[in-house]
């Protein structure tokens, strides 16, 4: 086969041109320019449509080289569904070098039904001003793009959930706790009334000594009234004992009614004082006598109610 001379010439020219071009855009060596730092987005998965991904690149370029402004990434460039939405380049000279800080913001506008691997594109940058034509490339950065809907959704209807009544919150244990607390509160109130009240409108409040105490409190402090006060206490003792109670029956009474045992001495004293007042000599100070009987009857009422 014969080759046309013009074709050979053209081929040669192209080959030379290519060699020339290779000679002009050699990869920058570390001594001339280098990427000293890259800050990529922290999260490389779960990226959705509309998310903005920012990366910062710091490039050190040795003088006399400098980045050619013509090769700066162009805002609005869309590559594989990723749009460069913002570009900021700042240059700062220091120690015979120029430090370029390039902030690039990309926004994802792609569409996919399943998670796919995507990448922020490589940005080729040319260096000029030096004896050689150099270039340096910002590397790609890969990430997982996640779709917002599942892959098999075809219609919204298929994906619709039936409208259901909101589930009731189980408050039973709260209710029991509330009832328990309410019961305790009511019990405490009743107990408080029981301890302090004199009336007989609550059950078990009409005890013999409660009645005696109430009557004694109402007695005027006049001569002769001390007999009534004594009668009321004696009646309470008799009623509680089930028959007449005298001093010599006291042990049997206290055995049968243990709640009064702590008042043994006071009860014995009462019988002695009662005998003196009724059968020997009436008390000189009737008022004090009745007041003391009121105190005693209250103490006995507390015994009767089982209250300390």
């Amino acid at each position: 086969m014969k080759t046309h001379p013009s074709i050979l010439l053209l081929t040669g020219a192209l080959l030379l041109g290519s060699l020339h071009a290779q000679a002009q855009e050699s990869v920058a060596q570390d001594a001339d320019a280098k990427i000293s730092a890259i800050a990529n987005p922290k999260q490389s998965n779960g990226i959705h449509i509309g998310d903005v991904l920012k990366r910062s690149i710091v490039i050190d370029v040795k003088s006399p080289y400098q980045l050619s402004k013509n090769t700066y990434p162009v805002k609005g460039t869309v590559r594989n569904g990723i749009e460069l939405v913002d570009v900021n380049v700042a240059a700062k000279a220091k120690n015979g070098m120029t430090e370029y800080r390039m902030d690039l913001s990309y926004q994802v506008f792609t569409h996919a039904n399943a998670p796919v691997v995507m990448q922020l594109p490589s940005e080729p940058l040319l260096l000029s001003g030096g004896p050689k034509a150099l270039h340096i490339d910002v590397p790609t950065w890969r990430f997982w793009f996640s779709p917002l809907v599942s892959a098999n959704i075809e219609t919204a209807k298929a994906n619709l959930q039936p409208q259901i009544k909101a589930e009731r919150i189980d408050v039973n244990h709260h209710r029991w706790a509330l009832l328990g607390f309410g019961g305790l509160l009511a019990g405490a109130l009743v107990a408080l009334l029981y301890i302090n009240a004199d009336k007989r409108w609550l059950p078990f409040m009409g005890g013999a000594f409660a009645l005696a105490h109430r009557r004694i409190k109402r007695l005027p402090h006049a001569a002769g009234e001390e007999r009534k006060a004594l009668l009321y206490v004696h009646q309470a003792f008799n009623q509680t004992h089930g028959s007449n109670l005298f001093a010599h029956d006291l042990d049997a009474f206290l055995t049968a009614h243990g709640s009064f045992a702590r008042m043994k001495q006071e009860i014995a004293d009462f019988f002695e004082r009662s005998n003196r007042a009724l059968f020997a000599a009436p008390p000189e100070d009737v008022g004090a006598f009745i007041r003391e009987l009121a105190v005693l009857s209250k103490q006995l009422r507390n015994c009767e109610r089982g209250v300390r």
Binding site: R227, H234, L278
Partner: peptide
């Protein structure tokens, strides 16, 4: 003795 109260009538 068990039934007849001491001071009842006197009161």
């Amino acid at each position: 003795l068990d039934t007849v109260a001491v001071p009842s009538r006197a009161m």
